[in-house]
Design a protein around this nucleic acid. Structure first.
Ligand code: FES
Ligand code: FES
Lengths: 144, 144
DNA sequence: CAAATAAAGGACATTTTTATCCTATTTATT
DNA sequence: AATAAATAGGATAAAAATGTCCTTTATTTG
């Protein structure tokens, strides 16, 4: 469904949000440790997220990644997926035709669009805050 | 969403079904031409589909790929996706945790499972016959 | 100002996916 | 029986995704 990079990206962003709720700024090393992902690869992904304003980065000692409380509400999963995986998942044809086009649909179009629309809505309506709060109360996990 | 191999596999299977409705057996070359896919790669995928009983293959002159009319109803998309992409799409965690586990869910679990279940149901309830008939009446396309 | 710390970024390595090529096998036709 | 047509399958190549390593840049602290 999502690329590995995107999975790590979401997990990382949720962890940053969670720690920011406590006013903690976190390092790449801590993030990779806590979401169980390869450090250097995670660093690349965090760069992307920072460039696309999903999270905020601070260099130097005491630096790290963080996220304002208000941004946790405005940053939706769709922004992360878009930043890392692009918009294939939103506009691509399920059977791989050049673009999804309702005027010359592939045989799966109608059924595929239904699912894709649900997925899109879900991603657009899910904020980092929402995901972080589940974690906070120990209901969900970022690694196992 | 699906791998390239899976996209080609579904398109190929639908084309085989369509032609079988007319009693025509089709070659790899014709299939690749009609679904706009790389020939040799498509041949590999057709082998997989044949081994997993999604379509039937016949060697030698006048040989090719075909599908009984009754099998067009029983062969569902889920079988093709499973044969080519495995069951990650059905049982994998959306955020990449080892397995999807409702007892130790990732933050996206509930919302992700909803979508995944819809997708699974859609694939399990969509037959090759259904997809082929749309094509037959010129309503849908396998290439553009 | 010097040193230490942390992200940014470039270069490279590995693995997986996608794609091609060639040979072997099966089978219909003459 | 010989030939030709078609799939099966092995070996290899190319491209993309994933992952690592090392240097540069920014910034805090002593
Ligand atoms: S054309 Fe294939 S999903 Fe829309
Ligand atoms: S645990 Fe992540 S989707 Fe179920």
């Amino acid at each position: 469904m999502f690329s590995k990079a995107c999975e790590y990206g979401i997990r990382a962003a949720v962890y940053v949000a969670l720690q920011s709720l406590d006013g903690r700024r976190v390092s790449v090393n801590e993030i990779a440790e806590e979401i169980d992902s390869p450090i250097a690869f995670t660093a690349k992904i965090l760069q992307q997220l920072s460039r696309s304003k999903v999270i905020h980065s601070v260099k130097g000692p005491t630096g790290g990644f963080e996220l304002d409380r208000t941004e946790m509400d405005t940053v939706k999963l769709s922004m992360i997926v878009h930043a890392i995986d692009g918009d294939d998942i939103y506009i691509g044809c399920g059977l791989g035709l050049k673009e999804c086009n309702a005027n010359q649909p592939c045989p799966l179009h109608d059924k595929f669009v239904d699912i894709r629309t649900d997925l899109k809505n879900m991603l657009e309506n899910t904020s980092l805050y929402e995901l972080a709060t589940g974690l906070e109360v120990g209901l969900t996990y970022l690694k196992r």
